[in-house]
Write a protein that binds this DNA or RNA. Structure first.
Lengths: 154, 154
DNA sequence: AATAGCCATTACGTATAGGTCATGCCCATA
DNA sequence: TATGGGCATGACCTATACGTAATGGCTATT
């Protein structure tokens, strides 16, 4: 287990030894991360994470001015990225997360999510249809182009 | 057949009577159109057409300063719109059209087109796969959400 | 002559998701 | 102490495809 972890000053001051001890081995429940650590882990840039914060999608605590992320923050970030993969806009993702923050136990937010998900599904199905259409049309063009090349194989 | 056609000054001066005669009845080979006429016919705005010109995709002749479109221009525009529907960028469309303009009889451009089309097909197939993935994942989320609502139907 | 339409050009605005500096603070090691 | 990282904020930049004025000219009609 090599120590490739680079720690920020604040992180260093506050938790370096701790970090050294339980490093990035197993997802410890009390682990803490810096922006760049988290960024590396999740395959995005630090800029991206800060951008999400700017847009109100996450709210990490701070050690002085330095952002410090907990496993909860990390999980939230993963949710955000999943939402992105599924084609939701940051705005939509924020809305769902906000609902969840306001009221994580009620059903209202689940209903909202369900509605959003179904809308998204419908959209994707439309997209798929359009995509098939395009593929068919393109296949047609391909055939025609091939035929044209056959004509006078010059 | 009512005359709903509004003609521009230049168009009027130059071809009004002619237009009146063979109006927008059948696609005459010698018909001429103004931007807005063409826009209406093809379902886009005049701004869009001018934008394409600005980007070098079309080059209508002019009667003074006013744009005048021939059936050839019209056909070209339709090609552009088709390309758009198929997901090509204006830049890509321009490139193909340029090739065609330079050398409409040679096979080079057909080959280029074929290459582009195949690339596009590959991309769309990838997209389709990703889309299926998303749909599956969303269906899963949908199920989970429904289950959660079942739990305590509060 | 005034009004209504259509056309032209120029230029700034929009949305999305960050990228890319520039500048500066703080900490630790050589 | 000079140097190297890492972090922070702020501000401007990118790409795409037009939308939206603003301003002005020309023509037909009233």
């Amino acid at each position: 287990m090599t120590m490739t972890t680079t720690d920020s000053p604040a992180m260093t001051a506050l938790h370096q030894r701790h970090q050294r001890e339980m490093a990035e081995a197993g997802g410890q429940a009390n682990a803490l991360y810096s922006v760049s650590q988290l960024a590396r882990q999740l395959g995005v840039t630090a800029r991206t994470i800060r951008f999400y914060e700017d847009k109100g999608l996450i709210n990490p605590s701070r050690a002085g001015t330095t952002r410090v992320y907990t496993p909860r923050d990390r999980a939230r970030l993963m949710l955000i990225l999943r939402g992105k993969r599924l084609g939701f806009s940051l705005r939509e993702i924020k809305d769902y997360l906000d609902l969840y923050d306001i009221d994580p136990t009620q059903h209202t937010q689940v209903r909202q999510l369900l509605t959003g998900v179904r809308k998204r599904i419908a959209k994707l199905q439309e997209q798929r249809a359009a995509l098939e259409q395009s593929l068919a049309e393109l296949a047609d063009i391909e055939r025609q182009a091939e035929a044209a090349l056959q004509q006078r194989p010059k």
